[in-house]
Amino acid sequence: MADTLVLRRVRRVSGEEIDIVIKNGVIAAITGPGQGQAEREWDGSGAYVSSGWIDMHVHAFPEFDPYGDEIDEIGVRRGVTTIVDAGSCGADRIADLIASGKQAKTNLLAFLNISRIGLLRIDELSHMEWIDREMVKQAISKYGGSIVGLKARISRSVVGDSGVEPLRVARELSEATGLPLMVHIGSGPPDIREVIPLLARKDIITHYLNGKKNNLFDDEGQPLPVLTDAVERGVHLDVGHGTASFSFRVAEAAKRHGIDPDTISTDIYRGNRLNGPVYSMGHVLSKFLLLGYPLEEVIAAVTTRAAAWLGKPELGRIREGEIANLTLFTLEDGPVVLNDSEGEERTASQVIQAKGVVGNGEFIECEIRA
């Protein structure tokens, strides 16, 4: 007998209440509430359903310390059905990362670090000889189905005396391979005004809401011209919260000027999963509710907009006949204290709590954080 599950009386973010019937991992029917028929059911009264959350910036290679974690710990167990590892591995270890992804319940994609050593060291772009152009191209040729772009971390502690030169090489590699760049920004040098003009349409600025001195807003909260120019030419803005890269103050300035995130990502790894300030995708999304973004816009940033950037629109929709990748979540009443990466606290009246996922057709309950 076919294995069937009905998600009973779940709500889309629009408020529409539905039943979703899943048969052998595929969405078999989307019906009115209480109408779906199946062997098993999950009572979703009070819960929302969206297409599976996509986290565009994680670190999922546990062998690297401090920036590593287990794939499913930061994926399905926290409501995320697809993760994109943001350059943990270069050409030396990308095969190992992709192999581990095949054993996980969470879908794994990756940005390839332009440094062949990846995050084996946290100054991986401080020696230009670690950027091996041929190894980059060979890795893409072999693992192109899993590699979605190139990653370059362009901040002082990473590049050392190399300055902006690693980004110039990354730009050349992007043009040679046809893959976009994800560029980490942080403390200078190099100055942010040297970095951003090198980015092109579809490239990603991650950590764009960081509160460091070398950030994208001036002392009055006005966006720098390099940022507004980048937005106009189609550069993609990603949050990449992380341990040190999200500021409430900067996020409020960005919102005032309509410079909103294209995608919301966590930059999660073991340390900030266990000790904060990240904890989970739901925790990070709650900060954007607190900032005044509507629920539909917040969820779009981890579903339809992320899927569109990846060129995988099927990951961002709920449709009969397709493999079920879904996230189930609730809005829980506060008060709950939320922290940014600068140590600033805000009190939220509501937070987003992932309850479960259907990942590639399999129902998995999420780990609940108190």
Rank of each mutant, 00 (worst) to 15 (best):
R9S: 12
R171L: 12
I122Q: 14
G282Y: 02
D72G: 14
S245E: 09
G160E: 03
I192G: 00
E73A: 09
T327N: 03
H283C: 00
R168D: 04
I114E: 01
G25N: 05
V169E: 09
I30E: 07
M281V: 05
M128N: 07
I140D: 01
P180H: 08
G145R: 13
H59W: 11
V159R: 00
G211E: 01
H236G: 11
V10Y: 13
S349T: 08
L181I: 15
G144F: 05
G343T: 13
E320A: 06
P313D: 07
S247N: 11
L112N: 01
A29Q: 11
T243N: 09
F288K: 02
D229N: 15
R12I: 09
I147W: 05
I114M: 01
R273H: 08
I264H: 03
S162P: 03
Y143N: 12
G36M: 04
A95L: 05
G36W: 01
L227C: 05
V358T: 14
G234A: 05
D85A: 09
T304L: 13
E252P: 07
D92F: 12
P223F: 08
L120M: 10
I352F: 05
R156P: 07
T330D: 07
D123L: 04
S88H: 03
T228Q: 08
G101H: 00
R233L: 11
V169H: 04
Q350V: 11
I364L: 08
G361D: 15
Q37I: 10
R249G: 11
V250G: 13
H127G: 15
E124F: 03
A251C: 08
N107I: 07
T263A: 13
H184R: 10
A99R: 06
D3E: 15
H236L: 14
W130E: 10
A95C: 07
S187R: 06
S286F: 00
D333K: 11
L7E: 11
T4S: 08
D3L: 15
E320Q: 06
G46Y: 06
V164Q: 04
H236W: 14
A300E: 13
G359Y: 09
V58H: 06
V84F: 06
S115K: 04
Y293T: 02
D65V: 14
V183C: 05
V158T: 03
A99M: 09
P313F: 04
E41V: 12
Y48H: 03
R193F: 04
G356H: 10
D3K: 08
K23S: 12
Y67H: 14
G356K: 03
I140R: 01
D55P: 09
F64T: 10
